[in-house]
Amino acid sequence: MKKLIIAAAVSALAAGAAFADTVRLGTEGAYPPYNFVNDAGEIDGFERELGDAICASAGLECTWVKNDWDSIIPNLVSGNYDAIIAGMSITDERDEVIDFTSEYFPADPSGYMAMAGSSVDVSSAVIAAQVNTIQAAHVASSGATLVEFATPDETIAAVKNGEADAVLADRGYLDKFVAESGGELIFVGDGIIIGGGVGMGVRESDSELKGKLNDAIAALKADGTVNKLIEKWFEGMTGPY
């Protein structure tokens, strides 16, 4: 083990000399189509392609890091990676702890998804949501009973096995589940806009990186790359930029 540590330290120093500008991008890897780990074991999705494009445009060397959603902000702050790109809506609450780049995805309406044939009153039912999301905060303040889960996948499972009456999440995430359920799962009510747009999170002390990312996002919006990627990954959506 000691040898391994020394080897790690030595090659880390060697690698450090080669690429001074490596930026570590943290993502959840469990929220398709934003980000997920594909069957080849690689991070894939809208944000994977966008993140790579942003890094190429900004001239940064980027590596991808997976991190659970519930600790994704603390681990950014303590320096495990340099930016969050994980379908994170820009909110005032989060903005107090970290900084956001300008948005690269518009405010996505959230939807309630439930089993077909069940009558759900979303103002008093048991609603599943992922922990630390704008949806969880919305349910908590709506008067409904909130059950929180660590991963988005568990919120869907909770509805299917009857633990919750409905799940509240981004429409972009839920659409595919509804479309592929063969009528078993349906949306209840209309989509509601809860948060702002989606941006990348950076440490408040890291204004240099924030500037570079903002420039790259602006350039990719201007040349249509962001729109193209949105249209590719989110069925039926037109790029707004």
Partner: peptide
Amino acid sequence: PLGSAPQFFHEAW
């Protein structure tokens, strides 16, 4: 390890 180190070293650490 250094930010530029390969992911393996981050995991080893």
